[in-house]
Design a protein around this nucleic acid. Structure first.
Lengths: 162, 162
DNA sequence: CCTTAACTTCACAAATTTCTGAAAGAAGCG
DNA sequence: CGCTTCTTTCAGAAATTTGTGAAGTTAAGG
């Protein structure tokens, strides 16, 4: 054992952050947002200031700003003004963010719109039209069902984590 | 009315293809695979040859090749050898592909691995460790539940589309 | 108000990704 | 078994994306 049980070896933290971020990148998220998000997730309080992020990740204030804008836009972090200071703090709400993950809602809606257009313009009575219609039905189904799944998750979480 | 009810105005088809592909791109899929996939989805038989794809989308054989390799890798299309010909045909199985969509399984598994490492190295008894553990629990939950959701979809589909 | 700390925006440089043409590689068909 | 047709691979050009420094904006604190 090296130190107290709540040590935070910066090296270990960094290793996790970079590794986890790499997975997010692989899934399609831009690099800086992924790293910033990883750092927040691995922080003790779940909040970090812009300066802390910049220092920990070795990136410029501009990069932090851009990453945070992205993350806020997809609701994976929220910004808080520290009262009586010009410091901004960024927070990952434990639950907020995976709600966001399943909230591809906006994207799905647009897929649905595109598919509806397609069915209309290709003709509902054509083979292609039918294929599009079935795909559309799938998304509509998913949309309804994911909501229920999140309900189940919240119940499960309540029970297991309180 | 311009022609028969099963007309396939290339202009309309193209408009759909490009519009739908744009949505896929927005969701993180590379451009060419998105366009190729759109074209297949909007085709009458659900299959197209490399040459047809190249002509319809105005792209080089090389681009078709690359796009198809990508799509096959993520199981969104399958390749078929047309017997007695050196033509390859690419097919989108109506159901195969959205199964693939929910099959982020490999990706989720790796997230889980990264999170497990994180819990171990940050300590399960630290605030950050607990946050990671809960996130991990979420993914494990999702994984189980999505499988059930697909079951429900298949049942629903059966009933509605036969 | 003026100063100063903190964040954001902008223009550009760097790195990466994407697509093409050309050449090489399979596979039917005579 | 060689010819021909189709597909893949490869190297490089073009386009896009990403991150930085520097200037600009906002708001706290004297």
């Amino acid at each position: 054992m090296t130190e107290s049980s709540t040590e935070r070896d910066p090296e270990s933290v960094s290793r996790f952050v970079e590794h986890f971020a790499a997975q997010l990148v692989e899934a399609g998220m831009p690099r800086m947002p992924s790293r910033v998000f990883g750092a927040l997730l691995a922080s003790d309080t779940g909040t970090l200031t812009s300066a802390e992020l910049g220092e920990q990740l070795r990136i410029s204030p501009a990069a932090v700003s851009g990453a945070v804008r992205y993350l806020a836009q997809v609701h994976m972090v929220s910004r808080e003004r520290e009262p009586g200071s010009r410091r901004e703090r960024y927070r990952v709400h434990s639950d907020q963010w995976y709600e966001a993950l399943t909230n591809r809602e906006a994207i799905i809606k647009r897929w649905e719109d595109a598919l509806r257009d397609g069915v209309a313009s290709l003709g509902a009575d054509t083979p292609a039209g039918r294929r599009l219609a079935e795909t559309l039905a799938f998304f509509e189904f998913i949309e309804r069902d994911v909501a229920e799944m999140m309900e189940r998750w919240r119940a499960y979480r309540e029970e297991r984590f309180g």
